[in-house]
Simulated assay, not measured.
Amino acid sequence: MTDPEPTKNISGGESGGGSEARFDPATAGTRAEAVVDRLGELYWTKTYGGQDAFECLVRTILSQNTSDTASQPAHDALMERYGPGDGAGDVDTDLVDALADADQQTLAETIQPAGLYNQKSARIVALADEIREEFGGEAGFDAFVRDDDPDAVRDRLLEMNGVGPKTADCVLLFAGGRGGVFPVDTHVHRIARRMGLAPPDADHETVREYIERDVPAEKCGFGHTAMIQFGREYCKARKPACLDDPEACPLADRCDQVGVYPASGEVVDPSDAA
């Protein structure tokens, strides 16, 4: 299949840096690493980093509790209104300043496609104000995310209202380019437990701990994005590919099928599996 990712990196495009990661699947030391290697062969093995940290934070907040098809138009509309060289000012406009000073109702109308727009607009304005006060703007926040101790960065992000573990990890990965960060969304949470890479009753943080323990740092980035794509195409929540045809899934030989019962056609959350 054609690799849908660009030659460089999806988080920042060609200007964002990043390159193809190379590895030998035969050297996988854990089952989780072997799964990630297979996903890399199936999709892509790109490294990440280089996206503007605050824009990445805003983009991830817009994506909360909605789909990419809904959050992307909201992000594009936000950047058109408040981004550099557009409605907010000249090419030197700082996005942090623009959003810290934004009228919340106008921002809410701008990001309406993302859903929960009143809540998200209030959150974005408050975060922009907080980041401006503490870091001085985009450049200072970028430097903090990219250069400070990653654990300290994660802890500080988690202190911000509306920033959960997945959002913090996405900022560390896509903006900071930090190795060893494997954000856990609903797809990763489901797949890791269904395949037996983490305990069936593991919460999102426990899944992250298991995967980051068992997958080399340089493979966590593409492992995260490729696993999400795998969840969209094959390991769906209600009807995984293996339900009707065990050979339809390219990872069937690596999966424990926890909560998936082809004989009866039943699919339950791994935590509810017998």
Rank of each mutant, 00 (worst) to 15 (best):
A114L: 08
G83W: 10
D253K: 10
A53H: 03
F222W: 11
G18E: 06
G29W: 01
E138V: 03
G16I: 08
E247G: 13
V35K: 09
G115A: 04
A241C: 13
D92G: 13
E20C: 09
E205I: 11
L251K: 01
A32E: 06
P113M: 04
T69G: 09
A98I: 02
L243R: 12
Q51A: 15
V36I: 15
T206Q: 15
A241G: 14
K8R: 13
H187V: 00
G87A: 08
L57M: 09
A143Y: 01
M160H: 09
S15L: 07
D3I: 03
N65S: 14
W44L: 01
E212F: 12
Y48K: 10
T206A: 15
M79P: 05
H75L: 15
F141G: 06
Y261L: 06
S11I: 00
R194C: 01
D203W: 08
A128T: 01
A252Y: 05
D149E: 09
A98E: 06
L243P: 15
L62T: 14
Y48F: 14
P246S: 06
W44Y: 07
D3A: 01
P113L: 07
Q72A: 11
R254A: 07
A32K: 09
D269Q: 14
A126T: 07
I191Q: 05
Q64T: 12
H75T: 06
K239V: 11
Y48V: 03
G89I: 01
D203E: 08
H204S: 11
F135R: 09
G140C: 00
L107K: 08
C235S: 02
A263L: 12
D97W: 09
P270V: 01
E134V: 02
G83C: 05
C242A: 12
D203V: 06
G196C: 03
E80D: 12
Y82I: 01
D155M: 06
P216M: 12
V184R: 08
A128K: 03
G259I: 13
L251Y: 07
F135I: 05
G137Q: 01
T106L: 14
P84D: 02
E209C: 09
C242G: 13
M1L: 08
Q105D: 14
T206D: 14
Y210N: 10
N9V: 02
Y43G: 05
G231I: 02
Y261F: 13
A122K: 14
G17Y: 02
T7I: 14
T47E: 06
P73D: 12
C235N: 03
A139H: 04
R154C: 02
A143M: 00
V267F: 15
P270D: 05
A252T: 14
I191Y: 10
D68I: 01
Y234V: 08
H189Y: 00
T69C: 00
Q51N: 10
L95Y: 04
D245R: 11
E133Y: 00
Q257T: 09
R178Y: 04
Q51W: 06
V260R: 13
N118F: 03
C56W: 07
A98T: 04
I228G: 00
V258M: 03
P250V: 02
D151C: 00
A77I: 04
I191G: 06
A26P: 08
G180W: 08
Y234R: 13
S11M: 04
F23S: 08
A198F: 04
N161D: 10
R232Y: 02
G223R: 13
